[in-house]
């Protein structure tokens, strides 16, 4: 079931433990961040070191604790568009309500100085694969623009318009960034420090 609240989610708190989920019942939604989890498990903020299966095993422990919407960081699709297709299906099968796909090349990085943005056709392939793979009955696909600072204005616009054309309605951008209105798109500000969605 995709609850109505998924469509209207504004804030999501990054969580890494059962107590964090259980003691934050006032949170609107929860997020399992690749960056936060890689620090938790590996001691460094480097999300691309984690495989999908490792993330899902961890996610399962948290997902079962709450019926609130749970967002999972689908990183850069864990490979090419084909990997994205299968990754999204698996994340949905494990109970994700919202799956984030970022605009980086795989392996995705948490440090901005190591992030390389994906080409537009490759990003299009990943987003299209993600949308074809998931069922809107159960989950939503959001785009996370990690490489926003790298883009020229036209390049940023192209990515937003691509998402818009494909039918993605939600885009995560850095908390300090701002965009003019795009019809049908909601920009959510993301706090990279705390790995949380602010609005």
């Amino acid at each position: 079931m995709k609850s109505k609240s998924v469509l209207a989610i504004a804030k999501a708190k990054s969580v890494l433990s059962a107590p964090e989920v259980l003691n934050n019942e006032d949170s609107e939604a929860f997020l399992l961040s690749g960056s936060a989890l890689s620090y938790q498990l590996l001691g460094e903020h480097n999300e691309g070191l984690l495989s999908l299966s490792e993330m899902l095993r961890y996610f399962d422990y948290l997902r079962i604790l709450t019926d609130k919407p749970f967002i999972i960081d689908g990183q850069a699709g864990f490979g090419n568009p084909l990997n994205t297709f299968y990754s999204v299906k698996a994340m949905e099968n494990h109970g994700a309500d919202i799956i984030l796909i970022n605009d980086q090349k795989h392996p995705s990085h948490s440090s901005t100085n190591k992030q390389i943005h994906e080409t537009l056709p490759e990003l299009a392939g990943k987003l299209k694969a993600a949308l074809d793979s998931h069922s809107s009955k159960y989950s939503a696909i959001w785009l996370k623009l990690d490489c926003l600072a790298e883009y020229r204005t036209t390049e940023a616009k192209q990515r937003i318009q691509l998402a818009q054309a494909l039918g993605i309605h939600d885009i995560l951008i850095d908390q300090s960034a701002d965009f003019p209105t795009y019809e049908g798109i909601k920009f959510h500000h993301f706090d990279y420090q705390n790995q949380s969605i602010l609005d």
């Binding site: 297709f85 537009l120 392939g125 990943k126 299209k128 694969a129 192209q158 054309a165």
Partner: peptide, 20 residues
């Protein structure tokens, strides 16, 4: 087939069609 469907060539055509 799935990999081909989302490869650079059809995606470039799709991007072109969208007008980006």
């Amino acid at each position: 087939d799935l990999e081909k469907r989302y490869s650079a060539q059809p995606m470039a055509a799709m991007i072109n069609e969208i007008g980006l």
